[in-house]
Design a protein around this nucleic acid. Sequence first.
RNA 1: GCCGGUGUAGCUCAAUUGGCAGAGCAAUCGCCUUGUAAGCGAUAGGUUAGGGGUUCAAGUCCCCUCACCGGCUCCA
Length: 656
Amino acid sequence: MSAQPELHITVAGTERAVAAGTTAGQALEADGRTTVAARVNGELRDLYRELADGDAVEPVEIGSEDGRAILRHSTAHILAQAVQELFPEAKLGIGPPVENGFYYDFDVTEPFTPADLKAIEKKMQEIVKQGQRFQRRDVSDEDARAELATEPYKLELIGLKGGASDAEGASVEVGAGGLTVYDNIHPRTGELCWKDLCRGPHLPTTKAVPAFKLMRTAAAYWRGKETNPQLQRIYGTAWETKDALKEYLAFLEEAEKRDHRRLGAELDLFSIPDEIGSGLAVFHPKGGVVRREMEEYSRRRHEEAGYEFVYTPHATKGKLFEKSGHLDWYADGMYPPMQLDGGIDYYLKPMNCPMHNLVFGARGRSYRELPLRMFEFGTVYRYEKSGVVHGLTRARGFTQDDAHIYCTKEQMADELDSLLTFVLDLLRDYGLNDFYLELSTKDPEKSIGSDEVWAEATETLRQAAEKQGLELVMDPGGAAFYGPKISVQARDAIGRTWQMSTIQVDFNLPERFDLEYTAADGTRQRPVMIHRALFGSIERFFAVLLEHYAGAFPAWLAPVQAVGIPIAAEHVPHLDGVARRLRAEGIRVEVDAGDDRMQKKIRNAQKQKVPFMLLAGDDDVSKGAVSFRYRDGSQNNGVPIDEAVREIVEAVRERK
RNA sequence: GCCGGUGUAGCUCAAUUGGCAGAGCAAUCGCCUUGUAAGCGAUAGGUUAGGGGUUCAAGUCCCCUCACCGGCUCCA
């Protein structure tokens, strides 16, 4: 022992001396099941890799973010191994971990069937049970090419090494630096079972996969490009415990129950009739109530915030979109033109901004009018590709709560600042509370406007964002060519994120439309233009709220706010009286006078997610009272009518 | 647009090997008069997404179209 040179290392913050040849796993006393990898000097490594003098080692637990990624990546390897054992002709694509799971892409002649998936899953279980070791091995480029001669896609990745940034998963296979291969070694025979080009790290053995499940198959373009061949992708999920997997599956079930398309039908809110067409929704009376309440509250808040309201048509001559440039770069997203008036092309509008610009330019503008905030619930039509249309969240016709703010360059900072506050406040009023912001910056490849203007606008957006004290995620190069953008992402009640509001600075359109105002010194100046939509689209926001609340809208939005349920028919007049009083206060109330059992009426109201059920029988009638039943099943009996009315009116007024 | 899957009553789902399209809920009409999530009975509801083909016979097998679902790409 003493003859061996010592290494001075730091283990989880504590300095220690260990013998040379000590592995990360030994230093951490890792069991290989809960501690599955190490972070050495900030870099993730396999447990059995030896430490060097001065290394700092931290444990990576399987349930941590890093640990899960490693677990999922390793499970993806097991998937690929199983597939190649069952389908030896399958060529490997890439197999990275993703949110909640992993996938692996394969080039196979026949797509996988559900039965294949079952067989693959079974094979994977065998591999897990065997406890094959993941063993890392450095290889030269030539050796890698020779070893992977039968894997054309892997060869392509080797060629990309270093510069591979276009495909999200490619960096998992080949990182910067030398290439590595991971061999799967049988624990008893020492036999090489399988191998894959991979950067690692991995779990110590396949046995360290506690729980996984294959989810579905799908086609995916090689390296994400539409022009590349399509591979067959298998999605799976893997978790640190069986319970965590169960929880995740329960989450998926819950998400399915909240699906706005399902709730839309169940609650009679909207439909998307075949007769009208894909992506074109109709709102039924109950959905109409919710939508109208959403719009009215938004309109009121915009009025208070100094917006002016405009209305513009749904169709226009093509010339307008030539001027805006949309026909150059957005024509694919537009419905094809109809020819009218002897050959003039008319288009349905995909965006409102050009029309708002015409309003701005309709007369001379003074600096005194700025910032000029022009708002419209503007309905637009976009020709979405057939495979992407999805309920109300991806429609072909939808209404934006769209506004364009024209201001001076000096006003821009204040305007963006107050705008962001306004946006977040309003979203909170609708019941969303958990946000993060995303800042999309210039793509040097395609952008107009000088670097200085971009830098200034981007910096202004960043400052406005930082002031909110919210998490800020950068999206480098993600901006449109005409200006930087901030988007507000909201997390819903079950933790899913949705892109909501966008705030976009535009250097392009004011030029194209030659927008001007007269400054105090009499000179003509170009205004800055800010596009912004809070809901994004009303339909999408409607869908997000529907899913967020699982259909149980707060009272102010609920289509029916209260329903009267008589114990017997003779109690109906009493409830009719209560309903009259509520209606006088603007409450949407119904009395269920049908000849169903009272229990059945409660069940119906419960399924319709009515916030307040007002029951009345002999006791209540004699006391001039009603009995509350709330959506959560709790009750409050014998409440005097005055008090009951007050409670409901207050809940609605306070938007609870 | 691409790949795969699925289309049976308003909704959820049955229908043996290719052999008479059926049930629950909802709806309508009765009966029952009820204290916190389904009372009882009856009636009605279908060119099995649409079109073509194979067959003595097609919901079922084959082809085309459409829609929807899950992905990819794209996106509010």
